[in-house]
């Protein structure tokens, strides 16, 4: 037995070569661990709790060469008024190109039948899907984060069935679809959970909203419709309803919006509930400027934009104009 036992030296040459091989392997294992550690190394050791830098939640979906346009068409058949209005805007092809992935953000806030006009009318949603697909869109998604249970909202409002028939894809919000979003420089929308999942790969955004009275905000039209992109405990924004609508106007820059004033909810909004709350106003608006659309919508409710403080503030911040006449809207009648 060697005098060095039980701690023998490496030994004869053959063993030494084997040792070198093993040593190389061990060295490689250690190096790999070290490399992995370096890759995962937390270079910004914690200490800035709650101070994440906000990043913009949504890209700008406007079509640059479309400019600011508006069309106002009167009539009772939503499909016809919508088609005519889009023709007057230069055709759907001006906005939707081949291969576009489009989101149609409807207002499906409540599990109410379409006749109560508390939600986007299924005809409008379906016709938008058809038009987009006709213009070559690769995919048309229809979504909203409603107030009531999403499945019932889409089913009872008739949107699920009509959109399905038109070939659109209905997206019911899942927990994983919400991610924190911010309006840069914003005060309210800061690292707030938003329905951003469906927007992955999306190139165009269309808003479609009815004209409704809203007890807290005065009215709920195309801009208030973006509220449905907010998740979390968003009801605390009712502490500053005009503030949140203005921030939504800044955050969401849609391709165009559709404001359906075929029937307008004059009272008891935003839920309504009775046909007595509705007034036939027989008008449908398509606009690339949501502020102008809402300013016009206010007139359907027998009011002016002065009655809706968020409109003036949004206009001041460059989100659009309250003077919709300045856009020289195309007007037509198809009744």
């Amino acid at each position: 037995m060697s005098p060095d036992a039980p701690f023998p030296p490496i030994g004869p040459e053959a063993t030494r070569r084997a040792f070198l091989r093993r040593a190389l392997k061990a060295g490689a294992a250690i190096a790999a661990t070290g490399g992995l550690a370096a890759w995962l190394w937390d270079r910004h050791p914690p200490g800035t709790l709650g101070l994440r830098a906000p990043a913009s939640a949504l890209p700008d979906f406007r079509v640059s060469d479309a400019g600011r346009r508006m069309a106002i068409v009167t009539g009772t058949d939503r499909v016809r008024t919508l088609r005519r209005a889009l023709e007057a805007m230069g055709g759907i092809g001006r906005f939707i190109k081949r291969g576009d992935r489009v989101i149609v953000k409807v207002n499906a806030a409540f599990a109410a039948p379409s006749v109560l006009c508390a939600t986007t009318h299924p005809d409008v949603a379906a016709e938008l899907v058809r038009l987009c697909l006709g213009a070559g869109a690769a995919k048309v998604l229809v979504t909203d984060n409603p107030i009531n249970d999403p499945e019932s909202c889409f089913a009872l409002s008739g949107i699920a069935a009509s959109v399905g028939a038109a070939g659109g894809a209905l997206v019911l919000p899942r927990a994983a679809d919400f991610a924190d979003g911010s309006l840069p420089g914003g005060r309210l929308i800061r690292n707030w959970p938003m329905l951003l999942g469906p927007f992955r790969g999306v190139t165009k955004l269309i808003g479609a909203a009815p004209v409704k009275h809203h007890a807290r905000a005065g009215a709920s039209m195309t801009i208030k419709n973006w509220y449905g992109l907010l998740g979390g405990r968003r009801n605390q924004f009712h502490q500053d309803i005009n503030g949140i609508i203005v921030e939504l106007a800044q955050l969401v820059r849609p391709t165009f919006v559709v404001l359906d004033g075929t029937m307008s909810m004059l009272t008891n909004g935003p839920t309504g509930g009775s046909l007595a709350d509705l007034k036939p106003t027989h008008t449908l608006v398509v606009s690339t400027d949501p502020v102008a659309a809402d300013a016009f919508g206010a007139t359907l409710l027998g009011r002016t934009f002065h009655d809706l403080p968020y409109l003036s503030r949004a206009a001041q911040l460059g989100c659009g104009t309250t003077d919709f006449g300045a856009l020289q809207p195309a007007r037509d009648d198809v009744s």
Binding site: L49, G50, P54, D180, S182, P184, G185, G186, R187, L188, R190, N191, W192, P193, G232, R233, Q236, F237, Q239, D240, G243
Partner: peptide
């Protein structure tokens, strides 16, 4: 609690 903005009770009073 600060650690989870979803648990906020009040609206933020300062712009970011």
């Amino acid at each position: 609690e600060t650690r989870d903005p979803r648990h906020a009770v009040l609206l933020s009073e300062h712009p970011s």
